[in-house]
Design a protein around this nucleic acid. Structure first.
Lengths: 137, 137
DNA sequence: GTTTTTGCAAACTTTTTGCATGCGG
DNA sequence: CCGCATGCAAAAAGTTTGCAAAAAC
């Protein structure tokens, strides 16, 4: 598990503790956008006793540390995904079946366009596509 | 008010009724992302008695009709804006003061990139930038 | 007249907060 | 041991639903 080994120092370096709940959440966190409730369910199913509040707090911490990326699609649910090996990418969200496909895109040009049009200092961005997946067409 | 005059037939054509609450909401709806609560407050301040539930239902209808665009930034609040004259555009959201700047971008290239990499059929997309506005830098 | 829409109450979902207890370093 | 982190209970915030009364057409 190179991912886990690589993530742990991250906590210590920033003055946070490596606790069992945090390790468990890191164990199940996929690289696909997943809600806190879903993660909580995944832990339960693995027989790990956990608390939804801890899941939220941990995801918030991981997001602040840059380990996790938080996204929101149409609904009012936040989704979290491990940034890990896959790196920065975007999503194709099927409005019929809810499936999510990852897609890497080169958006340098967009950032360049923004820079030309405004003095706004961009630190991050979200880019999501909605429509029909191959199966639902 | 060319906007209002242009919007109203939209309702009738799709079998919906032109009611006072809908007209009032259209009156205050800005072309900048605004939450249901905020709109409700704007109506109150104008002395218009209204109901938050009606605001939600109306915004949902307008969104389905394409009059309004729904977006969600980091928080769990949905924001709605009139699509009207400004047309499709994106947002620069300041994470310090919450101000929102509009920015028109040419994203054809991105859609082209998606088309090359996947058979997914894109119907709409969201693209938001976060960072520091000019004042907050 | 009859069908859509509204307003109110209440439910529901997701997320946040407060605080005593527990665990990591 | 000291202090950050957890778990529990409860609250907050945002949104949705059911239903009788009102208003469009």
């Amino acid at each position: 598990m190179p991912v886990r080994a690589a993530q742990f120092p991250f906590l210590h370096e920033t003055g946070h503790r490596l606790t069992t709940p945090r390790r468990r959440i890191l164990d199940v966190l996929p690289a696909t956008p997943t809600s806190a409730q879903e993660l909580f369910g995944m832990l339960r199913r693995k027989g790990v006793k956990s608390d939804l509040v801890t899941v939220y707090r941990t995801l918030d911490l991981f997001t602040r540390l840059g380990l996790v990326q938080k996204t929101q699609f149409g609904d009012q649910t936040a989704r979290y995904e491990l940034v890990g090996a896959t790196g920065h990418h975007h999503h194709l969200v099927c409005e019929q079946c809810g499936s999510i496909e990852d897609v890497p895109l080169d958006e340098q040009m967009l950032l360049g366009q923004v820079g030309k049009k405004s003095k706004f200092q961009v630190t991050r961005h979200t880019l999501e596509f909605f429509g029909r997946c191959i199966k639902c067409q």
